[in-house]
Simulated scan of single mutants.
Amino acid sequence: MRSLTQAARALLHEFADEQIPLVVRGVEWPCWRCHSTTWVPALIHVDGFTDIYSVIRAVSDLRLSYLRECLILCGSPLAHTIKTRHSKRAGYYLSHGCPNCDALAGAFFLDEAITEALVNNTVGRLPLIAAFRRPNLEYLLLAADRDNSHWYDD
């Protein structure tokens, strides 16, 4: 019988080499400043899996940073709409912005749109922003971050 450490190393080695197809989808957002309606990249999931347990909300923190990096790697013009912004209350933080006027697209409103798509089971009908392959381990770590993050931790 192998030790737990040996088994863990074997799994990590296997997952480090395996690439999986990931998809970024957007949610509709009406800009409060310029009144344009745009699709903000805010969800990541494995291609073909759009249930509530598979979708990762990428509206803040590490998940938003990962989404931005993936959009940069894909050459998506929407990558530039995700950047560090400043507020007196929250300080400096990574956030979405309007591609037309750079107004802040608040995480609360984006999260509400994601929740609506999940409840209505319409994630698969949201526009596809980007599709790419990444190491399986990245998605597992992203999902672990999602599963261990809570609103009351802030």
Results as ranks from 00 to 15, higher is better:
Tyr139Glu: 05
Ala131Lys: 14
Leu104Gln: 08
Ile44Glu: 01
Cys74Gln: 12
Asn136Ala: 14
Phe49Ala: 02
Glu28Asn: 08
Leu126Thr: 06
Glu116Ile: 05
Val27Pro: 14
Val27Ser: 05
Ala7Val: 11
Tyr152Glu: 04
Tyr152Asn: 09
Glu112Val: 12
Leu71Pro: 12
Thr37Phe: 02
His35Met: 03
Thr5Pro: 05
Tyr92Glu: 09
Ala16Glu: 07
Asn121Leu: 13
Asn136Phe: 13
His35Glu: 10
Leu78Met: 03
Arg57Lys: 15
Pro99Ser: 02
Asp17Tyr: 13
His45Asn: 04
Tyr152Leu: 06
Tyr66Cys: 02
Pro99Glu: 03
Ser36Lys: 11
Asn121Ser: 13
Ile20Met: 07
Ser95Trp: 09
Gly91Phe: 07
Arg134Cys: 10
Gly26Met: 09
Val23His: 02
Phe108Leu: 10
Gln19Glu: 15
Thr115Lys: 13
Arg68Phe: 04
Ile114Ala: 06
Ala42Ser: 12
Ala144Val: 05
Ala10Trp: 01
Val119Pro: 11
Phe15His: 09
Ala79Thr: 05
Arg134Asp: 09
Ser3Gln: 12
Trp151Lys: 06
Tyr92Met: 07
Arg25Asn: 01
Lys83Arg: 14
Leu126Gln: 01
Thr5Gln: 14
Leu128Ala: 00
Gly75Ile: 04
Leu73Ser: 05
Pro135Ile: 00
Val40Gln: 10
Thr84His: 13
Cys34Trp: 08
Cys34Leu: 08
Cys101Phe: 08
Val23Ala: 01
Leu4Gln: 10
Thr84Met: 14
Ala42Glu: 05
Ala103His: 15
Leu4Pro: 07
Arg63Glu: 08
Trp29Val: 02
Val123Asp: 03
Thr38Leu: 10
Ala90Asn: 08
Arg125His: 11
Leu128Met: 03
Arg57Tyr: 06
Leu73Asp: 02
Pro41Leu: 02
